[in-house]
Computed example of a mutant assay.
Amino acid sequence: MPHVVVLFNLKQGVEKSAYEAWAQATDLPIVRGLPSIGGFDVYRSLSLFGSEKAPPYQYVELIQVDDMTKFGEDVASATMQRVAGEFRSYADDPLFILCDKLG
Protein backbone atom coordinates (compact mmCIF):
# COMPACT_ATOMS: atom_id res chain seq x y z
CA MET A 1 0.00 0.00 0.00
CA PRO A 2 1.32 3.47 -0.79
CA HIS A 3 2.36 6.05 1.75
CA VAL A 4 2.79 9.78 1.44
CA VAL A 5 5.71 11.29 3.34
CA VAL A 6 5.42 15.04 3.89
CA LEU A 7 8.53 17.00 4.89
CA PHE A 8 8.18 20.63 5.91
CA ASN A 9 9.27 23.58 7.96
CA LEU A 10 6.98 26.22 9.35
CA LYS A 11 6.73 29.56 7.60
CA GLN A 12 8.64 32.41 9.14
CA GLY A 13 6.61 33.95 11.95
CA VAL A 14 4.47 30.86 12.57
CA GLU A 15 4.62 29.73 16.19
CA LYS A 16 5.22 26.01 16.75
CA SER A 17 2.57 25.99 19.44
CA ALA A 18 -0.04 27.42 17.03
CA TYR A 19 0.75 24.84 14.33
CA GLU A 20 0.84 21.94 16.78
CA ALA A 21 -2.48 22.95 18.37
CA TRP A 22 -4.06 23.12 14.91
CA ALA A 23 -2.55 19.74 13.94
CA GLN A 24 -3.96 18.12 17.10
CA ALA A 25 -7.41 19.71 16.84
CA THR A 26 -7.96 19.70 13.08
CA ASP A 27 -5.45 17.95 10.83
CA LEU A 28 -4.96 14.67 12.68
CA PRO A 29 -8.62 13.87 13.43
CA ILE A 30 -9.93 14.89 10.01
CA VAL A 31 -7.29 13.08 7.95
CA ARG A 32 -7.47 9.99 10.18
CA GLY A 33 -11.24 9.95 9.57
CA LEU A 34 -10.96 9.80 5.78
CA PRO A 35 -12.18 6.49 4.33
CA SER A 36 -9.06 6.16 2.15
CA ILE A 37 -6.59 6.52 5.03
CA GLY A 38 -5.21 3.61 7.06
CA GLY A 39 -3.04 5.77 9.29
CA PHE A 40 -1.77 9.30 9.73
CA ASP A 41 0.86 10.60 12.11
CA VAL A 42 2.75 13.87 12.46
CA TYR A 43 6.25 13.90 13.94
CA ARG A 44 8.28 16.81 15.29
CA SER A 45 11.96 16.47 14.34
CA LEU A 46 14.29 16.48 17.32
CA SER A 47 17.79 16.05 15.93
CA LEU A 48 19.92 14.31 13.36
CA PHE A 49 21.00 11.05 14.94
CA GLY A 50 24.71 11.11 15.73
CA SER A 51 25.13 14.74 14.69
CA GLU A 52 25.10 18.19 16.20
CA LYS A 53 23.44 19.62 13.06
CA ALA A 54 19.80 20.64 13.06
CA PRO A 55 17.43 18.47 11.01
CA PRO A 56 16.64 19.92 7.58
CA TYR A 57 12.89 19.68 8.30
CA GLN A 58 11.00 20.55 11.47
CA TYR A 59 8.11 18.15 10.82
CA VAL A 60 7.41 14.85 9.07
CA GLU A 61 3.98 13.48 8.24
CA LEU A 62 3.39 9.83 7.37
CA ILE A 63 0.12 9.06 5.62
CA GLN A 64 -0.86 5.44 4.90
CA VAL A 65 -3.14 5.41 1.86
CA ASP A 66 -5.36 2.33 1.60
CA ASP A 67 -7.08 3.35 -1.65
CA MET A 68 -5.44 5.86 -4.02
CA THR A 69 -8.60 6.40 -6.08
CA LYS A 70 -10.64 7.15 -2.97
CA PHE A 71 -7.78 9.28 -1.61
CA GLY A 72 -8.05 11.52 -4.68
CA GLU A 73 -11.77 11.89 -4.04
CA ASP A 74 -11.21 12.56 -0.33
CA VAL A 75 -8.59 15.23 -1.01
CA ALA A 76 -10.97 16.97 -3.43
CA SER A 77 -13.71 17.31 -0.78
CA ALA A 78 -14.63 20.74 0.56
CA THR A 79 -13.47 19.77 4.05
CA MET A 80 -10.06 18.64 2.87
CA GLN A 81 -9.68 21.70 0.65
CA ARG A 82 -10.23 23.82 3.77
CA VAL A 83 -7.75 21.73 5.80
CA ALA A 84 -5.18 21.88 2.98
CA GLY A 85 -5.53 25.66 2.80
CA GLU A 86 -5.00 25.95 6.54
CA PHE A 87 -1.98 23.63 6.31
CA ARG A 88 -0.47 25.83 3.58
CA SER A 89 -0.80 28.83 5.91
CA TYR A 90 1.57 27.06 8.34
CA ALA A 91 3.91 25.02 6.11
CA ASP A 92 6.67 26.56 4.01
CA ASP A 93 6.93 24.76 0.65
CA PRO A 94 6.17 21.21 1.89
CA LEU A 95 7.43 18.18 -0.04
CA PHE A 96 4.87 15.42 -0.68
CA ILE A 97 6.66 12.17 -1.52
CA LEU A 98 4.61 9.17 -2.71
CA CYS A 99 6.29 5.97 -1.50
CA ASP A 100 5.79 2.25 -1.79
CA LYS A 101 6.96 -0.04 1.01
CA LEU A 102 9.58 -2.66 0.19
CA GLY A 103 8.93 -6.10 1.59
Rank of each mutant, 00 (worst) to 15 (best):
L46M: 14
G50R: 01
Q12H: 05
K70T: 09
N9H: 01
D74L: 02
F49N: 08
Q64E: 15
V65L: 03
V14G: 04
L28C: 05
Y43M: 14
A91H: 06
I97A: 09
V4S: 00
G33T: 11
L98I: 11
I30E: 11
S51G: 03
Y43E: 10
D66E: 15
Q81S: 05
Y90F: 15
P55L: 08
V83D: 03
V42H: 07
Q64K: 12
G33I: 12
I63M: 14
I37F: 02
K16V: 05
K16I: 01
I30S: 02
E86L: 06
Q12F: 06
G72C: 04
S51W: 03
M80K: 01
M68H: 01
V65G: 03
G50W: 02
Y19I: 02
L28V: 15
V5R: 02
P2Y: 06
G33L: 08
Y90N: 09
G13Q: 11
V5D: 04
A23T: 07
L95P: 07
F87E: 10
R88V: 04
Q81K: 14
L102H: 09
P94Q: 10
L62N: 08
H3W: 04
D100P: 00
E15T: 04
M1W: 00
K53H: 04
T69E: 15
F71L: 08
G103I: 09
Y90A: 04
V6L: 11
V42N: 10
V65N: 00
G85A: 13
K101T: 13
S77G: 11
L10Y: 03
E73I: 14
R32S: 15
P29E: 06
S36N: 01
G33A: 13
S51E: 07
R88D: 13
H3N: 08
Y59C: 07
F40W: 09
D41P: 00
V4R: 00
T26V: 14
R44V: 15
L7N: 08
Q58P: 04
D100C: 01
D92Q: 10
D93A: 15
L48K: 13
T26A: 05
F96E: 11
L46P: 00
V4H: 01
V6A: 05
D66M: 14
D93I: 01
